[in-house]
């Protein structure tokens, strides 16, 4: 797990309804900051919250969370050891849901948070293999990171069922299964669920094309096409 995964997780809190801003920090190290106002104002906010939390720490109080409802919005602050997660909520937020999600995030990344420095890092973070770790906090980059992190999962399961059903009209069930498995092996496709949609379409057509009888093959291909259009838009 890297700091990038922590940043992406913190940023994803903002997808919850009514979460207008998020700051995650540890001491003077701002891990993630995305507030609907200037950086300077966000820094002032962080500074005041930091002083407040430090006060609790000095008297050895193990704080969990602070819920501060103002006339124009709410601050929800989740505290775990030295790490502080601040969320600015609007009236539309379900504060319990947000608090629960934020607590789970802090818990899931507890080890990473413990290892993070409390001071602003002066050199770029490096991973165990010595490669510099890219830590980005701009919304556009976070969006890009999230998109890249999304696993590519296509509709192969449904497509396979359609192909099995069509080929089942001209050959036995076991033969169909073997044919599909052999084809996947031949194409060196370790996980057909991660193929791009265009490749899944090609794969399905290539399986039907194994039918030697031209008339039957054409009939099956014409049956396949509308189903592929529905499953692979």
């Amino acid at each position: 797990m890297t700091a990038n995964s922590l940043i992406a997780a913190a940023a994803s809190l903002q997808r919850l309804e009514g979460v207008a801003g998020v700051i995650l920090f540890k001491g003077r190290n701002t891990v993630h900051k995305q507030m609907p106002f200037s950086d300077g104002r966000a820094l002032d906010l962080q500074e005041t919250i930091s002083q407040m939390v430090d006060g609790y720490r000095q008297v050895r109080r193990k704080m969990r969370q602070l819920y501060l409802e103002f006339d124009g919005g709410t601050l929800l602050i989740i505290i775990q050891d030295e790490s502080v997660l601040v969320m600015l909520l609007t009236a539309r937020a379900d504060a319990d849901l947000v608090a629960s999600a934020a607590s789970v995030l802090m818990s899931d990344h507890a080890l990473m948070l413990t290892q993070l420095p409390s001071d602003t890092p002066t050199t770029p973070a490096k991973t165990s293999d010595g490669i510099e770790e890219l830590v980005v906090t701009s919304p556009l980059r976070i969006q890009e990171m999230n998109e890249k992190a999304e696993p590519l999962v296509n509709n192969w399961g449904q497509v396979r069922k359609v192909v099995e059903s069509l080929l089942g009209k001209v050959m036995g069930r076991a033969q169909v299964g073997n044919l599909i498995d052999r084809t996947l092996e031949k194409r060196s496709t370790p996980d057909p669920y991660r193929l791009p949609v265009s490749e899944v379409r090609k794969l399905a057509i290539s399986l039907i094309e194994y039918v030697p009888n031209t008339a039957k093959r054409q009939a099956l291909l014409s049956e396949l096409e509308p189903q592929l259009s529905e499953l692979l838009p």
Partner: peptide, 22 residues
């Protein structure tokens, strides 16, 4: 501290607070 936070946020005052520790 809430008054400082309210000033920073451009709000007037704290209306409700819930403080939770162990």
């Amino acid at each position: 501290f809430a008054q400082k936070l309210a000033d920073t946020l451009g709000m007037r005052q704290l209306t409700l607070g819930i403080v939770e520790d162990r």
